[in-house]
Structure formats: C-alpha cells, structure tokens
Design a binder for these strands. Structure first.
Lengths: 181, 181
DNA sequence: TATATTTGCAAGTGATTACTCACTTTTTAA
DNA sequence: TTAAAAAGTGAGTAATCACTTGCAAATATA
C-alpha cells in the first residue's frame, strides 16, 4: 500500500466520525474540512467527490475488519467459533463501531455502497464460516440460523442508548447463552 | 379528529414514501410538492417546516400501529402471543413497512424523533405485553428475551433485498419455531 | 348574500451546497 | 541542482435548499 499523507488520513478519520455521528447527507464537505483542519479543495483533490470519499471510508473499514474475521475463522471448534462471532461487537475499537454505524445508516439510501460490504470477500467468508459451524453442530436450518445470528450481531455492533436498555456486555452474554449446548 | 383535506393527506402519503425510500435528508420539499402535485408553499402552510412534516408522519404511523398492537395484547395465551408478535411484519401494509423503514433510517441522525416512537405508549405497551408473556412462560431473563425479540422483529419489518436472503415468510416461520415448546 | 377564514399558488429570498480553478508550496527523482 | 509531479490553498460558482410573502380562490359561517 502507498504511504498515505497525514492530511489524507485525517480527512478519512474525521469524515468517518462525522458521517457515523450525523449522517452522510447531513455533513457538508466544508465541515469535514474545518474539522480536519485542511482546505475544502483538498478533499476533492484526493477523493474527487463526496461520494468517492464515502466509498474510500467503507473500503478502509472492510480492510480493518479482516483481522477479526481471520481470528474467528481460525477457531475450528464450531461451538467456540459461534461464541467468538457473538463476542466480536465487544472487541471492536471506536472506529470500528463508527464504521458499523455508518454501514447501517446508509443501508437504505445508498444501497450500492452498503452492499459493497455485504458482498465483500471478508464478510462472505465470515458468513460461510458461521454457516459451516451450524452445519457441523447439526442445526436443522444452518442458512436461516446464520442469517438470524448475523442480523443480531449487526445490531449488537450498533446498539445506541435506549431507555431501559440492557447493557451491551450483559446482552452479549445473553445471546451467547442461546448458543450453548 | 379533524377532517383532513385531500392535499394535506397527499403530502403526508407522498412524503412518507419518499422519506422511506430515499431518506429524509435526501428529499427536498420541492420534490415532495411535485410528486404530490401541490405547490411547495402548501407544505409549509400546513406543517410549518420540513421537520414538523416528518414529525406528523411519525405521529400518524404510531396511530396506525395501534390496531395491530391491540390484536397482540388481546391474546392471553403467552406462547400464542409471542407467535403473533413475530407474525406482525407479515400482516402489515405497504405504508406500515415504509413507516418502519423511515423509523430505522432516522434512528441515528434524528434521535429525538426516532425515540418518539420507542417511547410512545403503543410501543411501550407492546414491549410490556411481550415481557409478560416471557415471564409467564418462565423464561429465565424475560427482559433480555424481549429486547432480543423486538430487535429481530424490527429487522423483519425492514428487511431489504439481499443476496441469498431467505424470503420473509420462510424466515418468519423459522423465527417462530425458535419460540415453540 | 356578505364576510371572514382557510386553502392554495407563484415568485421570490438568503443561505448553503458540492465542486472548480488558478495558483503556491512541498516532495520526489534524475 | 533542478525540473516535474504531487499536495495544498482559498476564493470563487452555479445549483439547490428550506422557507417567506403577497395575493387569489375556495369554503365556511352569519
């Protein structure tokens, strides 16, 4: 990979944070520029357009998930593997969390970009590895089982404060208990 | 309730559809006006601001859910009640589905408005009624159990086409099977 | 019928938007 | 060292945005 200049990195970081927090459509490039302390023109010099910037952010996010996915896949005991997947939302950094939030928030209105992740090799291989685990454990419907679990995990990643919400750690444990022997 | 003029109704309908489909921030009031075949000014005459229009849409959505919630609550057999809740996403009209999508899509960036629904009497009473059912069935952790189920159902409402997605009906049945004896 | 209120429109308004351009500074490389 | 390439700036620009205003038509009320 090419060495990335400081300012380019900063634009990516700041934009991820702002997009995740306030929504892609609600964040003007001028605000990103100010927060990253660069000129607005530089954003377009580096990325060409606001949407291309979003695309670059997602690309980067996918890369960063790779390490965690590898960790999960390397676990050969199917039951332990499932426990590990469920635990992913707890292991993740702040930036990862922002990445997932962004992911979810663009799901409906930038579907091409959102599916980019779901269709990425990383994600697909994670799905497959979960499916294999369920198959090995003789679950009756491994595909549906996988879909349900992935849905739950995606939500775990992006849990936001709610009245009366059971805290993340406790809830993760609860979900794990559903997949014990 | 006051009789609502044709055009006011049309604005609400069209705005709901567009907001759900393209996202609140991505839909200009001019587009709503054109699609509803009214002048743009009329939107502001009736609702005052774009955000107030969104608010009115959510208010209306909450009202329309009431009927379904009543149906669920009236079921006294706890196991059947849970089955009924899970089936909600299948019974719902196109407009309901749009309402849920809108709900989800504003979750992150208009939290005040989004929590309006979660904190509404309708939703709270639905949650409580599910919690009671789990309690009656002697589930160990009825609160967490409820939270998990509500999470799943919310997702069922808003399922969008995905590669390899198990179709909604089949998936609903699968989820139901998880809560059988 | 007369009048007051509501409903409606077309043509604005200033602010904000994504993006461009002409230019300077820094870095790379021969 | 020098020239070319890349990184960076700041002042634009046209388009678009939510919203306003002044006035007309429709409707309700007396």
């Amino acid at each position: 990979m090419l060495k990335m200049t400081d300012k380019k990195e900063r634009i990516l970081e700041v934009a991820l944070r702002l997009f995740a927090l306030e929504g892609y459509a609600n964040v003007p490039t001028s605000k990103i520029a100010k927060a990253a302390d660069v000129s607005e023109g530089l954003i377009f010099r580096h990325f060409g357009s606001k949407e291309a910037l979003l695309d670059a952010i997602l690309e980067l996010g996918i890369e960063q998930v790779e390490h965690f996915v590898a960790e999960v896949k390397q676990e050969t005991n199917p039951r332990l593997r499932i426990q590990k997947v469920i635990q992913l939302p707890l292991l993740v950094t702040r930036e990862h969390e922002e990445f997932w939030k962004l992911q979810q928030s663009i799901k409906y209105h930038n579907p091409e970009l959102a599916t980019k992740y779901r269709q990425s090799e990383v994600f697909q291989s994670l799905v497959k590895s979960v499916e294999d685990a369920f198959s090995n454990l003789k679950y009756q419907n491994p595909k549906a089982e996988t879909q349900l679990l992935m849905m739950i995990i995606t939500n775990l990643f992006t849990i936001v404060e709610q009245e009366d919400l059971i805290i993340k750690e406790a809830f993760v444990k609860f979900v794990q208990s559903k997949y014990e022997e």
